[in-house]
Computed example of a mutant assay.
Amino acid sequence: MSVRVLLVDDQEMIRVGFRMVLDARDGIDIVGEADDGDTALALLDEVEADVVLMDVRMPRMSGVEATRRVRERENPPKVLILTTFDLDEYAYEALRAGASGFLLKDTPLDEVVTAIRHVYEGDAVVAPSTTRRLLDHFARRLPAPATEEPAPTQKVFDELTPREHEVMRLVARGWSNAEIAEHLVLSEGTVKVHVGRILTKLDLRDRVQAVVLAYESGLVETGTT
């Protein structure tokens, strides 16, 4: 079954470029385009999408706010953030708002297609090393929104077993399942099971949300490797 994609970017040339290359790929179906967050939300009332490719910087409604509103919907599509720079403070805020990952706008086509499919299948961390750099750069610089509860303490991780705690720390540092498996001398399948149990115990949506929680709770500090 094709992955239904909604393109959201205020630059028409960007949308046209993505549509041309993605439409030519099997398994990708572009269901619509929008030039800002407001239009995207209205369009989602008319079409069904599995993944939204969302520009992070747009007039009227930013990609951050649009992402937050998209993710508040019933059975919402996944959101994949598009950004010009890999250290973009808006991209970090979008991850907190519910995005499943982000891509640079100059990402090679094959990687874009792979990322869309990974996000659709629930593998949220599209580029672990880039995600790690972004979080390291901005985790201490961005204050929590005034409407949010105070940052949780590490007690939220008490339900994890010692092994799950170890896996959680490595996930938080942006390591892929393969990297974790090699480091802990486990199979990738076993690591995937551990990650799934961690997300369930902590009531988290995906790996990106786990990374953000780990940084904001102090489980992993910026600058660690």
Rank of each mutant, 00 (worst) to 15 (best):
S2L: 02
S2C: 05
V3M: 12
V5H: 00
L6T: 09
D9I: 06
D10V: 05
M13Q: 10
I14P: 00
I14E: 01
R19Y: 04
M20V: 07
V21E: 03
A24D: 13
D26E: 15
G27S: 10
G27A: 07
D29H: 13
E33F: 08
A34W: 05
A34G: 02
D35H: 14
G37T: 12
A40M: 07
A40W: 00
D45N: 13
D45S: 11
D45V: 02
V47S: 11
V47N: 13
A49T: 11
D50Y: 12
D55M: 03
V56E: 06
M58Y: 04
M61G: 03
E65T: 15
T67S: 09
R69M: 13
V79C: 03
L80E: 04
T83A: 05
T84M: 14
F85I: 06
L87S: 12
D88G: 04
Y92Q: 07
A94M: 06
L95Y: 07
G101Q: 02
L104V: 15
L104W: 01
K105T: 04
D110W: 02
D110N: 10
I116K: 00
D123Q: 13
T131F: 08
R132G: 00
L134M: 15
L135D: 00
R141L: 15
A144D: 13
A144C: 10
A146P: 03
T147K: 05
V156D: 02
D158N: 15
P162I: 13
H165G: 10
H165P: 00
V167E: 01
L170M: 11
I180W: 04
I180P: 03
I180R: 04
A181G: 06
L184T: 04
L184W: 07
L184F: 09
S187G: 13
E188Q: 14
E188P: 10
E188K: 15
V191F: 08
V195F: 09
G196Y: 10
L199D: 11
K201P: 06
R207L: 11
V208M: 11
A210D: 07
V211T: 08
V212A: 10
S217F: 11
L219Y: 08
L219E: 12
V220W: 06
T222S: 15
T225I: 09
